[in-house]
Simulated scan of single mutants.
Amino acid sequence: MTFAVLLTEKVKELSKYNIDIYGLEDKQYDYDMESGDAFFQELEQDLIEQGHFKTHVVLNKSATMIQLNFHTIGSVTLTCDRSLEPFEEPFDSDERIILKFGDHDEELTDEIEIINRNTHRINIARYIFDFIALSLPVKKIHPDLRSEEDEVELEEGEEDGVLVYSSADMEDPETEEEEKVDPRWEALKKLKGE
């Protein structure tokens, strides 16, 4: 196969993920996309070589921005970190990207980007890949080798977060700090003479 034929196939595979946004009315649009190994092989990445998935994209266009909601389900072939055996890892991902119209292209956050208002077409292949990659576990353990501890770690890792603000009634912060002091520190303070 010649380089030109390979390049054409690559362009053809990734062009499935082009969305022409120029001239779209301000309303909601739905897109369904499906792909397999060719998708992962055409992207310049080393994380996933094989897999298959279906994505449903809901595009909401307004005068100032485009909101893209992605629901992707499927499975990919991963290599176990313990046994080096390949295994299928299912995933189910719901993510969102907001593209605001501006004078230049810039990524503001993981979820918000500015795109030039003269952009005629966007390609969402990279977003889909990123969301699939983020939905995979950090530890790649074959299902036959997973213990209950591994399962708990995988589940907890998905829900970890930091509470930034809560409007719930709170006790006096000084009282909470006193209650949370480790008894070993109290013993050390006594030795120190405080």
Rank of each mutant, 00 (worst) to 15 (best):
E159M: 01
V57D: 00
R96H: 07
Q28N: 12
K12D: 05
E89R: 06
D37R: 14
F91V: 00
I66M: 15
K16L: 13
K180G: 08
D169Q: 05
S15R: 05
N60W: 00
E111Y: 06
H120N: 12
R146Y: 07
L145G: 04
R96S: 13
D169E: 08
E148I: 07
E186Q: 10
M1P: 11
Y17V: 04
E88G: 00
E106N: 06
F129Y: 15
K180H: 09
D160R: 13
L163R: 04
P173T: 04
I21L: 13
D160I: 11
L108R: 13
D94M: 06
R82C: 11
E49I: 12
T79K: 05
L78K: 03
Y17L: 09
G157A: 02
P173V: 04
H104E: 14
E89S: 12
T119N: 03
K100N: 12
L68T: 01
D105L: 07
E13W: 00
L134F: 10
M65F: 13
N118I: 10
A38I: 03
L99N: 03
K100W: 08
S15V: 08
L145Y: 05
V152K: 02
H104C: 12
C80L: 10
A125K: 15
K61Y: 02
V162Q: 13
E177Y: 12
E159P: 01
W185S: 00
E88D: 01
D37S: 15
V152T: 02
L7Q: 11
M33H: 06
D182L: 08
H52A: 10
M65E: 14
E177V: 15
F91K: 01
D26Q: 12
H120K: 15
R117C: 04
A63F: 04
K61L: 03
L43R: 11
T77N: 02
R96M: 13
E34G: 11
E149K: 07
K190A: 05
T175L: 05
D26L: 10
E179G: 09
I66N: 07
P90V: 02
E159H: 04
S93I: 10
V152N: 09
F101H: 00
M170D: 05
E49V: 00
P90N: 11
D92G: 10
F131A: 06
A63W: 02
Y17A: 10
H120Y: 11
D160C: 01
E158Q: 00
I112N: 04
K189R: 08
L136N: 03
D46Q: 09
L6H: 03
K16F: 06
E42P: 03
I112P: 00
G51L: 11
M33L: 15
E85P: 09
N60G: 00
E88L: 09
Y165L: 06
K10L: 11
D26S: 14
S15A: 15
L134A: 06
E159R: 10
G102P: 03
D46G: 12
N60I: 03
M65T: 04
F87Q: 06
D144K: 08
S166W: 01
L6P: 03
E107L: 07
I48D: 02
E153W: 00
T55K: 09
D160W: 08
K27R: 14
I124C: 00
K100Y: 15
H52C: 01
L163S: 10
E111W: 01
I112C: 04
G74N: 04
K100T: 14
H71S: 11
